[in-house]
């Protein structure tokens, strides 16, 4: 995975690049937007990490322009601007995610992983999280190579939770993803699917991974390193 870090503070860019290298990303960095243009023109990046206040312009405007030119690589904004409303403006301008400085490398890496797992990106078809793996093409879930034997709904659920690993997926979005409008959804249908999936994970030694946040939704926590 190759990333472009657009950040005017050279030391910060260097530290982020170093940290992300430990997570297996190769990073180039640009200190100005003009430099970033050159980079984007010459190399193919899987994702961009973008600061907003740059010496030769506003990162948001640059991003909107890049998006108009149909460069659809996912962009993560990493900025010191954290006021109410800034986040919305960033996402509106076409950013895929928004982080406020100072953010830890692990957080940045987790967000990048989630971005790259979104459908449509050039992510590999197999998502992994520790021993757990899911192949989006064959719709097979495995733990340490051993098949989980998932039903269609369980597979859909696992895929959704893995794509957003480490964050809570609200019940409403899960129901929308799992059931079409015509499916009669009884109030406890989702609970049943969740508990079957949880049991299958636990049978394979994955305890404490699928969490219930009562009244809100569910979360698959990241693998312990």
């Amino acid at each position: 995975m190759r990333l472009l870090i657009i950040e005017d503070n050279e030391r910060l860019a260097g530290l982020i690049a170093e940290g992300l290298a430990r997570h297996g990303y190769a990073c180039d960095s640009a200190r100005r937007l003009s430099e970033a243009d050159d980079h984007v023109a010459t190399a193919d990046y899987d994702a961009i990490i973008l600061d907003l206040g740059l010496p030769d312009g506003d990162g948001l405007k640059w991003l909107a322009r890049a998006r108009r030119n149909a460069r659809m690589m996912p962009a993560l904004i990493l900025t010191a601007r954290g006021a109410l409303g800034d986040r919305i403006a960033g996402l509106d301008a076409g950013a895929d995610d928004y982080l406020v400085k100072p953010a830890e490398i692990d957080e940045i890496a987790a967000r990048l992983r989630a971005l790259l797992r979104r459908p449509g990106n050039r992510a590999p078809t197999v998502m992994t999280s520790g021993a757990l793996a899911f192949d989006t093409a064959s719709r097979m879930g495995t733990v340490g190579g051993k098949s989980l034997d998932l039903s269609r709904r369980e597979a859909d659920l696992l895929e959704l939770l893995m794509r957003r690993e480490g964050s809570v997926v609200q019940r409403g979005s899960i129901e929308e993803a799992l059931y079409s409008f015509n499916d009669p959804v009884s109030p406890n249908a989702l609970e049943a699917v969740i508990s079957r999936l949880r049991r299958k994970l636990e049978e394979n030694g994955l305890n404490e991974r699928l969490h219930t946040v009562r009244g809100v939704g569910y979360m698959l926590s990241g693998a312990q390193p």
Binding site: L12, L15, G82, I105
Partner: peptide
């Protein structure tokens, strides 16, 4: 914010 970000990354 920026020096703080630097300090946290250096700490890593």
């Amino acid at each position: 914010r920026t020096p703080l970000a630097l300090a946290r990354l250096e700490l890593d």
